[in-house]
Design a protein around this nucleic acid. Structure first.
Length: 101
DNA sequence: TGTATGTGACGTCAATTTCC
DNA sequence: GGAAATTGACGTCACATACA
């Protein structure tokens, strides 16, 4: 797994996140007492976590695709550049090589 | 140190392509 | 035409890391 620092890919950038629409913060756990209330709170927390993680995964994949696209276009540019340099080298070789006839 | 967040890995599903 | 293979998107879990 890539570390979040150092060689971190450009698509790994933390963005400030807001609560998804429709998500309401519950009362603090300190106000809960019965086992049922605690279980409900745990379920609510889990669902909230799953929902946030779902969105985070979507965003993560979107950034990754963008990053790969970016790399691919850079490869295309470098290939063109490389081809030009090879052609230039061949031209210079022709100019510099002694004529044999 | 507990919580929030980002991401790799894995399984699933539907759409598309390939092969017979 | 239909089975098998491939592909892309998704949801979830586990783990690493950042941060208060």
């Amino acid at each position: 797994m890539a570390a979040a620092t150092g060689d971190m890919p450009t698509y790994q950038i933390r963005a400030p996140t807001a609560l998804p629409q429709g998500v309401v913060m519950a009362a603090s756990p300190g106000s809960l007492h019965s086992p049922q209330q605690l279980a409900e709170e745990a379920t609510r927390k889990r669902e909230l976590r799953l929902m946030k993680n779902r969105e985070a995964a979507k965003e993560c994949r979107r950034r990754k695709k963008e990053y790969v696209k970016c790399l691919e276009s850079r490869v295309a540019v470098l290939e063109v550049q490389n081809k030009k340099l090879i052609e230039e080298l061949e031209t210079l070789k022709d100019i510099c090589s002694p004529k044999t006839d």
